[in-house]
Simulated assay, not measured.
Amino acid sequence: MSAPNKSYDPVEVEALKPEQVERMRDEAIAAFAAAGDLEELQEAKTAHTGGTSPLALANREIGALPPSAKADAGKRVGQARGAVNQALKKRQEELEAERDSRVLVEEAVDVTLPYDRVPAGARHPLTTLSERIEDIFVAMGYEVAEGPEAEAEWLNFDALNIGPDHPARGESDTLFVQGQDPEQDSGVVLRTHTSPVQIRSLLERELPVYVICPGRTYRADELDATHTPVFSQVELLAIDEGLTMADLKGTLDHMVQQLFGGEGMKTRLRPNHFPFTEPSAEMDMVCYVCRGESVGNLDRPCRTCSSEGWIELGGCGMVNPKVLIACGVDPEKYSGYAFGFGIERMLMFRHNVQDMRDMVEGDVRFTRPFGMEI
């Protein structure tokens, strides 16, 4: 049996010649050096170290050589590929260092700058006060009732015993919503109080009814320091068997104590007239600043109550039987009380706001001091 023939001349492969391997090595190193950023370096890496790069293809040709030539060619290609990898690693470290230095400059943060350049927001104090009033009565067992701001005349006036000839139904006080036919009355107004919500509650709910009705109302008023055509109002309605003015008085006393603090806070009722209550009364509360001590005391005058000792809040009274009948409630079996007041007026009392225009102009300098109370 003859032995392998190892005496023939090696097959010369062009890609494995020393000068060709050196050329491929030098081209790869030059391409790495020319890369200006990591993205270009990645492209050069793929071109000179990838599976289809010149050195990778040359390495595959080693298998075509006779055994006596493989070792020398393999050593030559391996040294070239090692040099290429070292050059790649070095250039990558250089470019990463340049990138990090650039990022430190371009994305630097001045930690000495004020942290609160965007000021904190604030809730409008009318919203906060309205919710606080709701919380007081919800804790007493009342429910919060709401209704539309564009309301039927019957709900806004007739059901409340406000007749067609009542001055409040004139265009000087009420904003009427025009219908499709300008010559025909649409029968819709922008509600002048939140009392229509009380009527809706009596029509829709089962007795007894205990509701608190906050919301926006509209009047044909000029905007000045003490008046606004759009204002917030809150009204209360309680209908049950056996309710009296004593229940109304106790409810009012509790409300002012919760809103203005102190056991010394109390209310008084002065006779008045409203179409929807009978008997009716004006509701006053004792001055929350002087607690009535400035009355007749020239040495300690009170600017809040003008040394009168009392501050007017709003109207109240026992629900007129005509209102109960309009809502289908038997006045012989049920009675009830109601009261209402403006939330803007209450805000002026609580926080010494002098001009009602501050509440509607949207200036953040007015709302921000009240903060984000929830």
Rank of each mutant, 00 (worst) to 15 (best):
S7Q: 12
Y8K: 14
Y8S: 13
D9T: 12
L16Y: 01
L16P: 00
Q20M: 13
V21N: 10
E22T: 13
M24R: 06
A33H: 13
A35W: 02
G36E: 15
E43Y: 05
A44V: 12
A47E: 14
G63V: 01
P67T: 12
Q79G: 08
L88V: 14
K90E: 15
E96K: 07
E106A: 11
V109M: 07
R117Q: 15
G121E: 09
L129E: 12
S130Q: 15
R132A: 11
I133Y: 09
I133F: 12
D135H: 07
A139S: 10
N161T: 07
G170V: 08
G170T: 14
T174W: 05
T174E: 07
F176E: 06
D181W: 01
P182F: 03
P182S: 02
R191P: 11
R191T: 09
S195L: 08
P196S: 06
E206Q: 15
Y210P: 05
C213I: 02
A225L: 04
V230N: 08
F231H: 10
F231G: 07
Q233P: 08
L236R: 01
E241P: 06
D247T: 09
K249E: 06
K249R: 12
K249N: 10
L252W: 03
D253L: 00
Q258I: 03
L259Q: 01
G264R: 11
K266N: 08
R270G: 05
N272D: 14
H273G: 08
F274N: 05
F274G: 07
P275T: 06
F276L: 12
T277I: 06
T277L: 03
E282M: 03
E282W: 02
D284N: 01
S294A: 15
G296P: 02
R300E: 14
S306C: 09
S306T: 09
V319G: 04
A326L: 01
G328P: 07
P331Q: 06
P331Y: 02
Y334F: 15
A338E: 03
G340F: 07
V360F: 15
E361W: 11
G362N: 09
T367S: 15
